[in-house]
Design a protein around this nucleic acid. Structure first.
Length: 502
RNA sequence: GCGCCGCUGGCUCAACUGGUAGAGCAACGGACUCUUAAUCCGUGGGUUCGGGGUUCGAAUCCCCGGCGGCGCACCA
């Protein structure tokens, strides 16, 4: 404390020039008794309302109508006695305001030039007119600061760097119309999905995100700790086991749209927290779910694009209309290999195919896992149009019912669009004895050090022992649906994606 | 987690084989009553991601670390 260099630094001292300038403008307003952040400012119309009401005004017209508008200053052209400012509203609507010496008077015009900056939120009161060039404008009688911006806006006509867009989404939203569109599109899609499910008499529920055991998928969980229970808890990797408990209890059509958390790699198609729709329907199977999922996605396409054909941001079209292709896992792999592969193809033969196609292999993999890996290596990226891939090996689907016709297979499909997996569905396994066998095997894997294997959930098995109806279940990544509909990467579909600390 | 590439004024970028760090926009001062990526004159603004090393001299070369992008692995 006695050292001279420990003096508390003035927070304004070290700031970049432009931020010091804006802070001093704020200080000047306060000194003059004008709040840079008033609790309220005049506002009688949104920019959009003015634009709509006066859409057909001729050039150089006066209306005699006076309004108060608000908006963010995004562009300024100051002259000696006449200033132009372009304001923008949250919905993207822009409107010009004009401040003339004759109307606002000298002190107010000087204040405007000295105190207002790009990025400020302001209010302008005046007459609705068009300029001599025909631009719809509000000719100010007065103006007021609504909120002084202390940081400069990034330059308008250069794209923001990827990193700034994600780290400072609020800036991205201010300067990039597409960022705002994406937020609206996502809300539209989620609402459409809810409405699609409500129409079919599904009930929306919320199940635990903090779980004592993690299950319902194969993934590494995040771990946290409960002080009250003095025990570790897991952030859920899937809601599946709880939604099935609901089905056991007689909630025959049930769904949840909520976040899952998986402690795994981040890339253009994976986020540690991601939104998921899971839906279960008693007395349905994977065929019923296949039809419904297609309908829900098509209804979402109508909601955002007005058509089953959606246009991505890069201009390419994705056709989601019609019935969609349906293939089997083994059939599509056989076609890609040019060799017949079936559930009884032995592992040595599969390993030869893997080697031939430069697929690196984990010795722990069984034949089922190998077939899936070969599929992902050889077929997945070719599935651009929506395609259902059906009938997966039992080995990789511990919660799925055995196929009604083919031994060794299960009634599961994955839906691929644009080369990535968008949704999955099962005819759910409901035999508590078989389910226990499968889960015990998983637990043994867990004990063997496989952190992705499920833990044995005795309560879930107890629920199933009370009798679960034959059920069709599905899960779909909401973020991925947005990706399919817009062509964006996953971090653009999430408003505030996780980023490393700065 | 591994590999490759990148990080320079507020923003977007330049600076050859190592030789005084620049531009546009933004900011500041001035001119301008119809502009709209306004125009004209003038001015200021940098710990070149951080730390260490090599060198007479480092944005540039080397090492360590941070962050980002891409690819691979894992996963949806």
């Amino acid at each position: 404390m006695t050292e001279q260099n420990v003096a508390v630094p003035d927070p304004a001292e070290d700031l970049p020039e432009q931020m010091r300038v804006r802070r001093s403008k704020r200080d000047r307003m306060l000194a003059e008794g004008v709040s840079p952040y008033p609790v309220t400012v005049p506002r009688t119309a949104t920019l959009k309302q003015v634009r709509e009401q006066y859409a057909d005004l001729p050039m150089d017209a006066a209306t005699g109508d006076h309004v108060s508008i608000t908006g963010r200053v995004i562009f300024v052209r100051n002259g000696g006695k006449l200033c132009f400012v372009t304001l923008r509203d949250g919905d993207g609507t822009e409107l010009q305001a004009m401040l003339s010496l004759a109307k606002v008077g000298e002190p107010s015009l000087t204040d405007w030039k000295q105190l207002a900056d790009l990025g400020d939120l302001i209010s302008v009161t005046g007459e609705v007119i068009t300029s001599r060039r025909g631009e719809l404008s509000v000719l100010a009688d007065s103006w007021a600061m609504s909120a002084k911006a202390l940081r400069p806006l990034p330059v308008a006509h250069k794209p923001l760097s990827e990193e700034t867009r994600v780290r400072q989404r609020y800036v991205d939203l201010i300067v990039r119309p597409q960022a705002r569109d994406t937020v609206r599109t996502r809300a539209t899609v989620v609402r459409s999905l809810r409405e699609s499910l409500f129409r079919r008499n599904y009930l929306e529920v919320e199940t635990p995100m903090l779980q004592l055991l993690h299950g319902g998928a194969a993934a590494r969980p995040f771990v946290t700790h409960s002080n009250a229970l003095d025990t570790d808890l897991y952030l859920r990797i899937a809601p599946e086991l709880f939604l099935k408990r609901a089905v056991v209890g007689g909630i025959d059509r049930v769904f949840e749209i909520n976040r899952n958390f998986r402690n795994e790699g981040m890339d253009s198609t994976h986020s540690p927290e991601f939104a998921m729709l899971e839906a279960y329907e008693a007395y349905a199977d994977y065929n019923v779910m296949q039809r419904q999922v297609r309908e829900w996605i098509q209804e979402a396409a109508i909601a955002v694009a007005g058509s089953h054909i959606v246009t991505h941001y890069d201009g390419t079209e994705l056709d989601l209309s019609g019935e969609w292709t349906s293939v089997t896992l083994y059939g599509s792999l056989s076609a890609a290999l040019g060799e017949e592969v079936t559930p009884s193809t032995d592992i040595a033969q599969l390993l030869r195919y893997a080697e031939k196609h430069d697929l690196s292999v984990d010795p722990k993999w069984g034949p089922g896992k190998l077939v899936e890996e070969l599929f992902e290596h050889l077929v997945q990226h070719t599935l651009q149009a929506p395609t259902f891939v059906r009938d997966y090996p039992e080995e990789t689907a511990p919660l799925t019912r055995a196929h009604r016709e083919t031994p060794g297979l299960t009634e599961k499909w994955d839906l691929y669009v644009s080369g990535f997996e968008l949704a999955t569905a099962y005819s759910e396994l409901v035999d508590p004895v078989v389910q226990r066998e499968r889960l015990v095997a998983q637990s043994l894997l867990a004990a063997g050090g496989d952190p992705e294997a499920m833990q044995l959930d005795e309560d879930f098995l107890r629920a199933m022992e009370y009798g679960m109806p034959p059920t069709g279940g599905m899960g779909m990544g909401i973020d991925r649906l947005l990706m399919a509909l817009t062509g964006l990467g996953i971090r653009e579909t999430i408003l505030f994606p996780l980023v490393r600390p700065e």
